[in-house]
């Protein structure tokens, strides 16, 4: 297997991971697509040696069809995932006007409560303050 295939995989993974870190959902979706392709190339590159297409009637050394079947399935699944992510991004856009992932409100409230307790000492427990 050639070194170039692995270079390609590395580039696809790097680009995909970078895009996954973005806050914008459209870029996350693109990242999923790119990283998915990276995985597909990885399976093809490591899974089988080059050869003739594995079809009845072909002569010579045939390539192993199983990794190709795996990759075909992975492509179909990736297609569905990408569609779903795009729908999510579209929905997010209709609600908030952008396609960015928001913060978790409940999580921030807990943090604030903890800070409050720290500041005020152990006497007024937040539960008692609120009831």
């Amino acid at each position: 297997m050639s070194i170039w295939a692995f270079a390609l995989i590395a580039v696809l993974f790097a680009v995909g991971s970078y895009l996954l870190m973005e806050r914008s959902l459209t870029r996350v979706a693109l990242g999923v697509g790119v990283i998915g392709n990276g995985v597909n190339v990885l399976i093809i590159a490591s899974g089988s040696d080059a050869g003739e297409a594995p079809i009845i009637g072909r002569e010579g050394v045939l390539a192993d069809p199983l990794p190709q079947a795996l990759v075909l399935t992975a492509i179909v699944i990736g297609f569905a995932l990408l569609t779903f992510l795009m729908t999510l991004a579209w929905r997010n856009w209709t609600i908030t006007g952008n396609d960015e992932v928001e913060d978790d409100v409940e999580d921030r409230m807990i943090t604030r409560r903890a800070e409050q307790t720290e500041k005020l000492g152990d006497v007024p427990h937040p539960e008692d303050v609120q009831t």
Binding site: V28, V39, I43, G47, L70, L81, L88, I95, V101, D104
Partner: peptide
């Protein structure tokens, strides 16, 4: 939608790791 996004993206990462593992194990 907010929490769904986190869930979907993290599970996609899980799927990527899993399919990578399957591919490498096959290799």
């Amino acid at each position: 939608i907010r929490s769904g996004t986190t869930y979907v993206v993290l599970n996609i990462i899980e799927s990527v790791v899993l399919v990578m593992a399957v591919g490498l194990i096959f290799a």
